[in-house]
Structure formats: structure tokens, C-alpha cells
Amino acid sequence: MSEQNQHGHSTTSSRGAETLQEISDIKRIMERSSRFISLSGLSGIAAGVCALVGAYVANNILKDYYVELNRGAASTYEDFTVLKIKLVILAIVILLAALILAFVFTWRRARQNHLPFWDLTARKLLWNVLLPLIAGGLFVLAMLQYDEWHFVAPACLVFYGLALVNGSKYTLSDVRYLGYSEIILGLISTQFIHAGLYFWAIGFGVLHIIYGTIMWWKYERVNSQ
């Protein structure tokens, strides 16, 4: 910070340097106090990999179900319920794995940069992401409750995108573009309703890996070399 008090008799040019320093300090404090900057690109990549694994397992579960169905075994309501429960449990496991890994990489980055992990900006970011996300989660569960599975993937993508756009005010701005991408992808997927799982895999898998890599490249590559 400026030490102009201690150096009252400094020359004009060093006074200018101090002034520049003061302005850059102000900018830094404003930035650091309003945005959570420790978000790691590796968190995004890890979440994307989890999503792809999840989509692969889900695809196999669905294949098995349809093989049974096509063999002429009468599909009972119980079978469908079991299928739904399997998929919901899978979704929860994948979500937890993705969250834990995302947490670990971001926590690690905060520690490396000697920044607090849990501060004002982290709380703001979490709250602004969680609000649309929880609303979306409950909405999707309600759709499943009425066996309306067609719009599960589009709803996941659109709500998640809105959550990211909402939270991006409090973190790195790249997150906003990831949010836009998810929303657009979600809306497109409403027109390809039987390819829901593929859109889901692109949105939560591929896009996470792409944006995670971009963010890692932009902000972390230098530090880790």
C-alpha cells in the first residue's frame, strides 16, 4: 500500500509511482473482496470427468432396461420405479463425487495462493449458485414424480446454466460464458428429446472439461510450472 506518509519528501517521480501503486492496490482490494478468485479450472475438469462416467453408467443401465423390455418381458410399473431409483441414486453419487473433487482442487488453489477459502466472496458465490440449483433440483424431482422424464436433461442444463450466470457475478467471468453455453444447450435439447442423455453428457461433461481447461490455462498454468 501507499506509504506516502513515511516518505513525505519523496521526489515527484517516485510520488507518481506511489500513486500508481495506490490505485492498483485499490483495484486489487475491490476485486478480491467482490469475487471468489480461487475457483480452479481443475475443479471443472474433474466435475466433467465425473459427469462423463455417470452418463456412461446411466447409458448402460438404460440399455439393460430396454433389452429386457424388447425381450417381451412385460414392463411393470415396478420395473420402471426400480429404473428411476437406480438413476436417481447414480445422479446423487455422481453429484457428490463431482462436488468433493471440485472442492478439493479449489481449496488447494486457495491454499497455494495464501488466500482464505471460506470468506465473504465464497459465501456469496455459494448462495447465488445454490439458489437456482436447489430450485432446479426440486423441479426435476417433481417431474420424475409424475413420470415426466422427457424434460429432465433440458431442465438440468437450463437451471444449472442459470445458476452459473447468477453466481458468475461473484467469481471469474469465464463462469458466465459456461452458464450461457449450458442454457443454450438445454434449450436446444428440448427439440431432441430422446437424446437427453447425450446433451446431458455434453453439458455436464464436455463443456466442464473445455471451460475447466480454458480457466486452468488462463489463470493457473504459470503457477504450476
Binding site: M1, D25, M30, S33
Partner: peptide
């Protein structure tokens, strides 16, 4: 705002 802590407080409150 000569003081760095007062300037810091103001910087934070301007954006929060």
C-alpha cells in the same frame, strides 16, 4: 484516505 486501512475499508465497501 491517507491511511491504508481506511482506504481499504472504503474500497471494499464501494463494491459490497
Amino acid at each position: 484516505f491517507d491511511n491504508r486501512i481506511r482506504l481499504g475499508v472504503m474500497s471494499i465497501l464501494m463494491v459490497n
